[in-house]
Design a protein around this nucleic acid. Sequence first.
RNA 1: UCCAGCGUGGCUCAAUGGUAGAGCGGGUGACUGUUAAUCACUAGGUUGUAGGUUCGAAUCCUACCGCUGGAGCCA
Length: 499
Amino acid sequence: MNQRTSIKDLPAFVNQSVTLHGWIRAIRSSGKIRFVEFRDGTGTCQCTVEAIHPEAFDALEHCGQETSLSLTGTVREEPRSPGGVEVSVEKVEIYQIAEEYPISRKEHGIDFLMQHRHLWLRSPRQEAILRVRHRIITAAREFFDQEQFTLIDTPIFQPGAAEGAGTLFDVDYFGSPAYLAQTGQLYLETAAMALGKVYCFGPTFRAEKSKTRRHLTEFWMIEPEVAFYELEDLEVLSENFLSHIVQAVLKHNRADLESLGRDVTALEKIQAPFPRVTYSEAVELLHNPELHAKLEAELASEQARGEGLKNEVAEKEAQLAQVSKAWKVEKLKKEIQELQDQIKELERWIANQPAHIQDAKSFEWGSDFGGDEETILSRQFDAPLIVTEYPKEIKAFYMKENPADPRTVRNLDVLAPEGYGEIIGGSQREDDLAKLLARMEAEGMDPEPYQWYLDLRRYGSVPHGGFGLGIERTVSWICGLKHIRETIPFPRLMGKMMP
RNA sequence: UCCAGCGUGGCUCAAUGGUAGAGCGGGUGACUGUUAAUCACUAGGUUGUAGGUUCGAAUCCUACCGCUGGAGCCA
């Protein structure tokens, strides 16, 4: 067995001999010395191979990007190296000389990267995102474990729909129709009646024809469900849960967030308690002239930001004249292009904002919030916004009618800040058999396949509730990503499955 | 499903009706401190597909395919 040292541990091995196992991220040579940027999944370090070790030096002669090998040498403190330490290599053992690697250090188009997703994962940015994803999942499980929840695995093959049947993937289950799970909720409710505090975590599937930066057809959801919890308990649970996750990522993955260019100060503000509004209050807020004034002010400040961006473009264009290297010219041009794209997006936003303000003014009680309303509302707060008690008509049959206002249900949505939209949706469940049956009838549902679920209201029914957190939307928000496709190793998007 | 844009070497792009080019990556060589190293040389293209207009098409037109962005839809 080989002795192995991880790159992240190198500072503890200064002046000692180590063996690293990994891949070449980049290699440069300068006559009698080669510089190897070496990665092993824990980090990257620069290694030098000098011609005074001819075997090692010659071994690297034809090795390109992603060649796999082990390096043995001495760790030195070295200010000229990007990581502050460097390994002087004496021995090289090659596993495989990589063929010409398709992903270079230059920029690539998104289509190309998606088709090479299996290789794209090796790039530093994707590594960072995957580590944050891991932390979010680990922190979520840790939280429920600390809170004495029991993990319950719910089935992925399910006989029917919990919600809209048009968005289910159907499969042939030995000749009978079955569907891929959209949620574990109904099953989880039964487990809550057994164990009290339970949660499930698994993949869920939606056959929605949504081609947006926020939708996947296969995504992971973590769902708690608790007996004797009412809406107010769920509000507290959700804010503690999210705070715990964000704090864990800040604690363990700060470097990853910074490498992603995430504004960490925005995340540091995420501490329970969170702001709360009811749906009706949110509608009033949308109608509030003060909000409109604020939005108008925002419009002005965004216009100013647009001017700033235009100045940046001018600056870069001035720099262009002084740069002669072709690739540097291209890089500058690309940056200018990106700025111009930003300006274009901003201008589109500015152009649409008056319409959005108008929509807000004329928003009618009873409609569901669209992306625009969600964005306007959540941008009024630094922390996630808990919105409760939506109109019954636009919500699912199992949500408990609000005794204080029967037009509404006892549900909650949590909207992430910065326009990232809904990350949590949940509710207190209807625990009254008659009301639940009436509601199913109103929706035109056949109660027959749900008898097992209705049994919970026959044998010791209690108030209970829960919610679901979409892992990928949470990753997207915490990492500050533009598109959900980077939040999961192998994204399944509408009409797309490669590799 | 709708709207818009795009499709040129392995990759990122240029060439707007008149000889298809650059950078990166690949290959060969030089160089002991590189940071997307540098320098020299070099290989690599039926311009997404099919049709049309034209003396001549990467460029114009039509259809199809693919991709991207947006809208719709959306726990």
